[in-house]
């Protein structure tokens, strides 16, 4: 795709002292950065059964309770909200990856070399 011409640059004035370019006026707002859609991969026929398609509203709570017990991790009640928020985020983002169709012989990124 041909790139649109750049806006007129405002060159720095001199090299010593270090130049300071002026900022242009703020541009109009555009769409949010973080897209929540499953994206192209989903259109390619990916299943909608990803990890974040969490089956019950309290699934994250169950995972936190069982997981911290199984791993012997301490969980002060004051920390619970932060942990739940972050685990929910991880699961939502993981779902985006989980939804992407990969072949059975896909190799993981880091590969061990003997």
């Amino acid at each position: 795709m041909k790139r649109k011409a750049a806006r007129k640059p405002k060159p720095p004035k001199s090299r010593r002292p270090i130049p300071v370019a002026k900022m242009p006026a703020a541009k109009k707002r555009v769409k949010p950065v973080a897209k929540k859609s499953a994206g192209k991969g989903a259109k390619m026929g990916a299943k909608k059964t990803g990890a974040a398609a969490v089956s019950r509203p309290d699934a994250i709570d169950l995972l936190i309770t069982a997981g911290t017990e199984a791993l012997r991790l301490p969980l002060d009640p004051a920390w619970y909200g932060g942990v739940k928020f972050n685990l929910g985020l991880i699961m939502r983002l993981a779902a985006l990856v989980d939804d992407f169709p990969l072949p059975d012989d896909a190799e993981p990124g880091p590969v061990f070399h003997a």
């Binding site: 942990v83 699961m91 990856v97 993981p108």
Partner: peptide, 20 residues
Amino acid sequence: IAGALAPASLLIKAQKFRRW
């Protein structure tokens, strides 16, 4: 703590996606 609870299956899948 949240990261410690992420299922290993999803970690491996993320690593496979990384290669793709």
